[in-house]
Write a protein that binds this DNA or RNA. Structure first.
Length: 706
DNA sequence: GAGTTATGTTTTTTT
DNA sequence: AACATAACTC
């Protein structure tokens, strides 16, 4: 196998296949390339069976990319390699051995909302005031304990205060409710495999024998459970290759511990360490800025990133007047880039918090620049979608009380608090699930619906089942007869969901309900299913990790935003913010803009923020300052180039937007139209007569035969 | 039990 | 500022 396109360190990391190996890979040092080449090398040169290789990443995006790259090198045999996220790998194990853990085959996975609902429900039952005890806090305490391998029993040792005592009680009930509902939360996906392996050493050995070669990406982001899981499985052959960069550890909020990477040498005897310090991604100027920033952190291994790349253009710092000016500036620069022939796909706008995307989005809209927002509006979080999924989950697992409670009265069928209370009492007395407690009354109608759907589910395709759920439940009929804009949007969203199930079927052939539910439980972002159009990417710095773009804008570099207000009092937290900033900067290949707004209105109140300390840490010579005045002269934001003055609209009109598709006009205010779009786009304000808006939809709504 | 109004909360980041 | 949940009324 030809490894000539690798440098010496990369080559060494590729061919050192036996024994524990730590690859400290700086940003842009060809980490993914090493991982994928290494997999290819194992198979082609070492004749390792593809099924013996386990590669684990953190995000679906990363797993997907690795798969694609490996398939490119190896062809179809690459599909036998187990490449998955930690959570999907955990699910794989649980699905093979659910019975040994006491679960039934048709268990459901509760998302974070569902588990919060469960905490709230338990608190209500315990008569705990949610004013005094914040359910979210409690839910996150439970979660971090589970991620540290501490169950409710283990937690008891740490109970000191009255508050701890309450948490302990809720924790116990939470575990019990999950188990009784034959359901798992996200943390269980990591935790249960460990529980299983401790209980059944022989089973563990099977996995140890199966996965002779293990690769872990982003090792700095592993938490306790993940650390133990990989240590256990690799314990036999010890062929574990971990790749990471402690300077990019940004997930401490979910228990990630960058010390796992710092301690690798101690934990794995005879570990080899390889440093990848040569950066292939960024220009010298961008790298200088990154180095300026990260050197202020104390907790790190010494690494010295360097590059052969050209110096490139200077990193620009723009101080905007306010968040709108910031957005205008970005839009203006992007327009220039596009005019120069640069593709939208090569441009990204990064921010610290999702809340910042809105104002940017509005500016992009008005300038008619195509964009996509990654991960902000979760399609699956919409009420109608969650309701539909809850139906599917109950069909799959009727004793899942949380999902049952969500939909037992959706659409309204006269089942209220009183009925639920009676059901709960009956369930408690007879040790039954709510579903099994239904024997008569209005609620039997609901049960009959579910029973009918359950009896038919195996004879229908997924899409047919979805249609039947919408019909039999009455959800579709209710929305159709409502005849409001909101209802139409909901119908559109359901239609979009149907597109997803169809896509699924086209790609995977006949897919069972079970398969589908597990998949969407772990992939919450609808974007992941779609082919991306050419568009500028808007996303948080967290979601940008592992990605790269030619031209990058980092906005909101202000004290209180980035670093985030919650981190300002703690040195550890500030260091994490700094790592996050380092991640952001090192996403850029060619050009980078750092932007802060002096005045920012967020959630209704206005703040005057100082520029981020991270900007202050950059040597002056590495920055080019742009002045605020320029923007007002040069931006053509308010001119009417794109406006067709003769266009006439009235509320209720159907319109079709080049980027957002079908929508209704819901308001007109002077020259500004308020339009409700479907899917993830929601409500937008747009200029009347803008060329991207056309009247009518071109065809009629799908209402009748969704 | 359903619909309306009032209140409160969110906004750090993800599987 | 926007949205979701809780409280209140019919």
């Amino acid at each position: 196998m030809n490894l000539d396109n690798l440098n010496e360190q990369q080559k060494k990391a590729t061919i050192t296949t036996e024994g524990p190996l730590l690859v400290l890979a700086g940003a842009g040092s060809g980490k993914t390339k090493v991982l994928t080449t290494r997999i290819a090398y194992l198979i082609k040169e070492k004749k390792v069976n593809p099924g013996s290789i386990l590669a684990i990443t953190f995000t679906n995006k990363a797993a997907k990319e690795m798969k694609e790259r490996v398939v490119n090198i190896l062809g179809q045999s690459a599909h036998e390699i187990q490449i998955s996220t930690f959570h999907s790998f955990g699910l794989l194990i649980i699905r093979e051995h659910y019975d040994k853990l006491g679960y039934k085959r048709n268990f459901t996975i509760l998302d974070s909302d569902d588990s919060l609902t469960m905490v709230k429900k338990i608190m209500r039952e315990l008569n705990l005031d949610t004013q005094i005890y914040n359910p979210k806090t409690i839910r996150s305490i439970i979660s971090s304990n589970k991620n540290a391998m501490i169950d409710s029993k283990g937690y008891e040792k740490f109970v000191y205060t009255e508050f701890d005592k309450k948490v302990f009680e809720i924790f116990k009930k939470y575990e019990k409710s999950l188990f009784e509902g034959n359901s798992l939360d996200f943390d269980d996906l990591l935790l249960l495999p460990l529980v299983l392996f401790k209980k059944e050493p022989l089973l563990l050995e099977q996995y140890q024998l199966k996965y002779k070669y293990i690769l872990i990406d982003e090792y700095q982001d592993t938490n306790e459970v993940q650390y133990l899981l990989t240590k256990m499985i690799s314990d036999k052959y010890k062929n574990i290759c971990v790749v990471g960069d402690e300077s990019q550890s940004i997930y401490s909020f979910r228990g990630a511990n960058y010390r796992n990477i710092l301690n690798f040498e101690k934990d794995y005897k005879n570990a080899e360490i390889i440093l990848l310090e040569k950066n292939y991604r960024s220009t010298q100027n961008i790298l200088n800025v990154a180095n300026n920033i990260i050197k202020n952190n104390t907790q790190k291994k010494d690494k010295n990133l360097w590059t052969d790349n050209e110096a490139g253009s200077k990193v620009v710092h723009y101080q905007a007047y306010n968040e709108k000016d910031e957005a205008l500036y970005v839009v203006e620069k992007i327009t220039n880039l596009i005019d120069k022939g640069i593709k939208e796909n090569d441009i990204a706008i990064l921010y610290r918090t999702n809340a910042q995307s809105r104002v940017i989005e509005e500016a992009m809209l008005k300038s008619n620049i195509p964009y996509k927002i990654v991960g902000s509006v979760y399609f699956y979080n919409r009420k109608e979608i969650k309701d539909l999924i809850a139906y599917l989950k109950v069909i799959h697992n009727p004793i899942d009380n949380i999902n049952l409670l969500r939909i037992i009265n959706v659409p309204r069928r006269g089942i209220g608090a009183k009925t639920i209370e009676n059901l709960s009492n009956h369930a408690y007395l007879h040790n039954l699930s709510l579903y099994d407690s239904i024997i008569d009354g209005k609620e039997i109608i609901f049960k009959n619906i579910i029973e009918e759907l359950r009896s038919k589910k195996d004879d229908l395709t997924l899409t047919e089942l979805v249609d039947l759920v919408l019909d039999k439940s009455g959800i579709r009929q209710e929305l159709i007869s409502e005849k409001t804009i909101e209802a139409d949007i909901r119908l559109e969203n359901l239609h979009e969901f149907r597109t997803i199930t169809k896509d699924f079927e086209e790609r995977n052939g006949i897919i069972s309900l079970e398969e589908f539910l597990y998949e969407i439980s772990l992939v919450a972002d609808v974007e992941e299913y779609k082919n991306k159009d050419n568009a500028v990417t808007l996303m948080t710095v967290h979601s940008a990790k592992g990605l790269e773009f030619e031209h990058v804008f980092i906005v909101g570099l202000e004290e209180g935003i980035f670093p985030h207000i919650n981190s300002i009092d703690s040195n550890d937290a500030i260091e994490e913010e700094r790592r996050l900033c380092y991640v952001a900067v090192t996403r850029a290949k060619k050009e980078l803009w750092l932007i802060n707004a002096r005045k920012r209105t967020l959630f209704g109140n206005t703040n005057f923020n100082l520029a981020s300390r991270f900007i202050g840490e950059i040597d002056d010579e590495n920055l080019e300052i742009e002045m605020v005045e320029n923007i007002f002269e040069s931006n053509n934001f308010n001119n009417n180039n794109n406006i067709d003055e003769s266009a006439e609209y009235s509320v209720g009109d159907k319109v079709n937007h080049d980027v957002f598709g079908k929508g209704y006009i819901v308001g007109i205010d002077g020259k500004v139209l308020t339009i409700a779009f479907s899917n993830q786009h929601g409500i937008k304000k747009l200029m009347k007569g803008h060329k991207s808006i056309k009247k009518g939809w071109g065809y009629e709504l799908f209402n009748k035969n969704i």
